[in-house]
Amino acid sequence: MEPAIGVAVLAAFVWGGYIYLLKRSFARYPHAWLLVVFYMFAVLWYLPAVAVEADRVTESAAAFGLPELGILVWTAFTTVAALLLFLKALAAGEVSYVTPINKIVPVFVLPIEILLLGQVLTPLQVLGVVVATFAVYVANYDSAGLFRPIAKAANSRPAQLALLSAVCFAVGDVGRRVALQDLAIAERLWVPLFFGTMTVMLLPMAVARRPSLSRQEIPKFVAVGALVAFGEHLTTVSFGALPASIASPIINTQAIVAVVLGGILLGERHFRLRLLAAVLAVVGVALLSL
């Protein structure tokens, strides 16, 4: 389990940087169009990885049936919904506010996995989930009061969108775990199929809102496409080896990475509090590995 946890931690850093870049460099682009472009470049970047394990990919593809197709479509649909909701929330609010709320995904993953999949966690692992989730709360803490983040979530449109996105992400995370572990879909097959299915779902919206794009802008899309391919590969490996209730809280500490980047590079407020949250996140990850 330890190597997979290391992979999940690396995925958190990759996705945290990705969130920062979305806010910093891609805010002006239509959301569906942006995701489609990222996924197209990501698939191109990922094709060499597919070729390396061509035999295993072919074997997994031959066994692909209706259950595999169903879980692929369901996971892609819930992830697309989660991403669009998150991008809307990110466009309307600050990174340091929206991201921590969105990344309470493990709060929803744990009961889903326990109730539907019979997952059993040790007491220390449950404590690790609680600590990692509390780290997200601390990152979003407001000095006006202990329950201020909850009040914000109840009355703020960005917070509401971020919370609904978190629920969709949680359902998608459990679906990903079922696909990779219970149905044993090969990781190198899953990634391009997942990107491709999401692209098809997003394409009608993307075509309807195409922005003007200069040649000078293309390299940054190519670069982020590589980042997305790498992040999805790490995420897929994590969910292929770990229960969703463990992989999800580790990967969703990306909220802390995004908040710290926002504090350092964008000069956002409450930076010391965000560092405390980062420490709590590390403690939570350590408990999950025991």
Rank of each mutant, 00 (worst) to 15 (best):
Q160T: 10
A258I: 00
Q160N: 14
V7R: 02
A61P: 07
V222D: 01
F239D: 01
A61E: 05
P30D: 09
V9M: 10
S143H: 09
A223G: 07
L72S: 03
V9I: 15
A166N: 06
A82H: 06
R210S: 10
I19K: 08
K220A: 14
L163F: 13
R24P: 00
P106H: 05
L146M: 13
T253M: 12
F221V: 08
F77E: 07
Q119D: 10
T133E: 00
I251N: 09
F169G: 03
A223M: 13
P67F: 14
A154F: 12
A76M: 05
L110P: 01
G6N: 05
V57T: 06
L115W: 11
V222Q: 03
R274P: 00
A12H: 10
L72F: 03
I5R: 03
P149F: 07
V174R: 06
L213E: 09
A11M: 11
V43T: 11
L287M: 13
P111M: 05
G240Y: 00
P30Y: 09
A11H: 09
V120S: 14
L146P: 02
E113M: 04
P106M: 06
L87N: 13
C168K: 05
T235A: 11
T236V: 07
V80M: 13
V282P: 00
V43M: 12
T199V: 10
V260M: 13
D142K: 12
V207Y: 08
L193R: 05
R176V: 14
E59C: 00
A81M: 15
R28K: 14
I19R: 07
F77T: 15
A32S: 14
V50F: 09
L22E: 04
Y46W: 09
K23D: 12
L116S: 08
F221D: 06
A226V: 09
V200Q: 03
L72H: 03
G284A: 09
L34Q: 12
L290Q: 15
G128H: 08
L213Y: 11
P204C: 06
L85M: 15
L273V: 08
T78A: 13
A12R: 10
V237E: 05
F41N: 07
V260D: 01
Y18G: 01
T197F: 02
V14R: 08
Y137A: 01
V57S: 06
E68Q: 15
I218W: 11
F221L: 09
F64M: 08
V224H: 08
A139Y: 00
L261F: 09
H31A: 15
L146R: 12
A32D: 08
V207Q: 07
E68M: 11
R215G: 15
L189R: 04
E2Q: 12
V50P: 07
L164F: 14
H31P: 02
G65P: 04
Y20C: 05
P111R: 03
A208P: 06
G263W: 01
M205P: 02
G17H: 07
M198Q: 15
